[in-house]
């Protein structure tokens, strides 16, 4: 009886040590779910979800504080992906959050006064320029978040829709005309 007790105690102590060590040795920094959600989000960093960037929104979703239908740049498909990832029901966009056509910012360089406000607002450093020097957008890096629009004091930034040309054209889902019964 006593020996059995000792064996059990010894075993529990041993396992406790092993588990305790494993908890320290294999500790995961941060919440892995946040990373997964962040990978699904489009990384425009636009803040249209109400959070200051994609990562904070991902954190809020992971904590269950936020809905999954707040990201317009992610589109309907983004919601589906989040729903699949989190195992929750799909929700359509609510209210005024609607996906827009993709666009890229454009600075009218004749109007730009070189105030650097847009540079400070750009979340992905896609604007080049210096104080009292003309600014310009690196189009390939622009996520189309529109965060540069409000700070501009002379309204010289516009959003250009990305026009379809041969380089970005894609095949459409074939439209099949259903066979109709002959009357």
């Amino acid at each position: 009886m006593i020996s059995a007790l000792w064996v059990m105690i010894a075993l529990s102590v041993l396992l406790g040590i092993v588990l305790g060590y494993a908890a320290i040795r294999f500790k995961i920094e941060g919440n892995p779910l946040v990373e997964k959600i962040d990978a699904v989000l489009p990384q425009t960093q636009c803040g249209q979800c109400g959070y200051p960037g994609c990562k904070p929104y991902a954190e809020a979703i992971a904590k269950g504080e936020s809905d999954i239908n707040l990201c317009p740049p992610g589109g309907d498909e983004g919601i589906h992906k989040l729903a699949d990832l989190l195992g929750v029901e799909y929700k359509p966009f609510g209210g005024d959050a609607q996906p827009k056509a993709k666009a890229v910012a454009f600075i009218d360089e004749n109007t730009c006064i070189g105030c650097t406000l847009c540079i400070q607002a750009c979340p992905v450093d896609a604007i080049v320029g210096a104080a009292k020097q003309m600014h310009t957008i690196i189009a390939s890096e622009c996520t189309g978040c529109e965060l540069c629009l409000p700070p501009c004091p002379v309204d010289c930034i516009s959003m250009d829709k990305i026009a379809e040309d041969i380089s970005n054209w894609k095949w459409q889902h074939p439209v099949i005309i259903p066979i109709q019964a002959v009357a």
């Binding site: 989000l41 990384q43 425009t44 994609c54 896609a126 890096e141 894609k170 095949w171 074939p174």
Partner: peptide
């Protein structure tokens, strides 16, 4: 072709998103 171009677009978007994340 439709599926291929969608897959291609997604991979391009994914790359762009990764780049944007990195820059951000």
């Amino acid at each position: 072709r439709y599926a291929k171009s969608e897959i291609h677009e997604r991979s391009v978007e994914k790359l762009a998103a990764d780049k944007a994340r990195e820059r951000h």
